[in-house]
Simulated assay, not measured.
Amino acid sequence: MDFRKFIEQGEKLFLPNLSVDMVIIGFHEEKLKCLLLQIGEKWLLPGGYIFRSESVEAATVRILQERTGLPDPHFKFLSVFGGEDRNFTEEWRQFLEKDDINFTEDCWLNDRFVTLAYYSLVDFEKTKPMVGNLDSAFAWFGLDELPDMWMDHKKIVLTAKNRLKEDMQQEHLTYNLLPKEFTMPQLHQLHQTILEETLDRSRFQKKMIASGVFERLPKLQKDSPGRKPYQYRVKKA
């Protein structure tokens, strides 16, 4: 969409005062990282607005697909962020004035916005990030190495980090961060990274296999030194 059209006619196209923000998490170099976009001097979460003609879920899928290039990305609802002072007038003013666009007091963006936040677990190697009309660059940052961020987006990232710890205790979802075929040592390392604690390797593997969620593949991994661990994948429904 043309940028000026977005600014001048956005209130006719999108639901008012509502946005979607995504904490897109990948696992790379034994670190949890999230995808951020750069606008000006700071960074923010990938996100967008909900067209009046689409559902919230459809908007979430659309935004994720646009940002990750994945056809069927994982996502899970995180929380609503809607503080009484969640108004980003100065941030928008600074950004627009750099592009010589007049930011008027009656602009639809000059209002309080409530955001529906989600987190998405993705295979880092399969993800193909893309910039949009507003942002100039993208990059992956460690969840403990976040840059200077716009608005309340750092709070949203840290909320997602803590929620992932909680959710993984209740359901199997961390495999979304790995390739379709993976080894138990890889899954073990991933869980240790998320929980930030050491897990007994033997007990962990027995627990994962006993869950019935994973199936062992007949072929062995060939690119690791020493003993060749079996590869696993999620059982088909």
Rank of each mutant, 00 (worst) to 15 (best):
D21N: 11
L32W: 11
I7E: 01
V23G: 00
F88L: 08
L70Q: 10
G48Y: 12
L64K: 04
P71M: 07
Q65Y: 10
R4L: 12
G26T: 14
I63N: 06
I50V: 14
K12V: 02
P16I: 15
V80R: 13
G83H: 05
T104P: 04
E30V: 14
G69V: 15
W43G: 00
L18W: 12
F113K: 05
K126D: 04
E91W: 13
Y118P: 08
L109Y: 03
I39K: 15
S55C: 07
M22C: 09
D85Q: 09
L32I: 00
F27D: 04
F77Y: 09
I24L: 03
V23T: 07
E66R: 14
W108N: 02
D100C: 05
S120D: 07
S19T: 09
E57Q: 09
T68Y: 13
G26W: 08
F75A: 08
E30L: 08
T60M: 02
R4S: 08
E57M: 09
D111W: 12
G10Q: 11
E29A: 10
L109W: 06
E29L: 07
L44K: 14
M22D: 10
G83K: 03
N102G: 02
I25C: 00
E125V: 14
L121V: 15
T115N: 13
I101L: 12
Y118V: 08
Y118T: 10
F88K: 02
G82L: 03
E105W: 09
L37V: 04
F77K: 06
L13K: 12
I25F: 02
L35P: 00
Q94V: 05
S55G: 10
V23C: 02
K5Y: 10
K12L: 03
E29M: 07
L13H: 01
E30C: 04
F75W: 15
C107P: 01
T60Q: 05
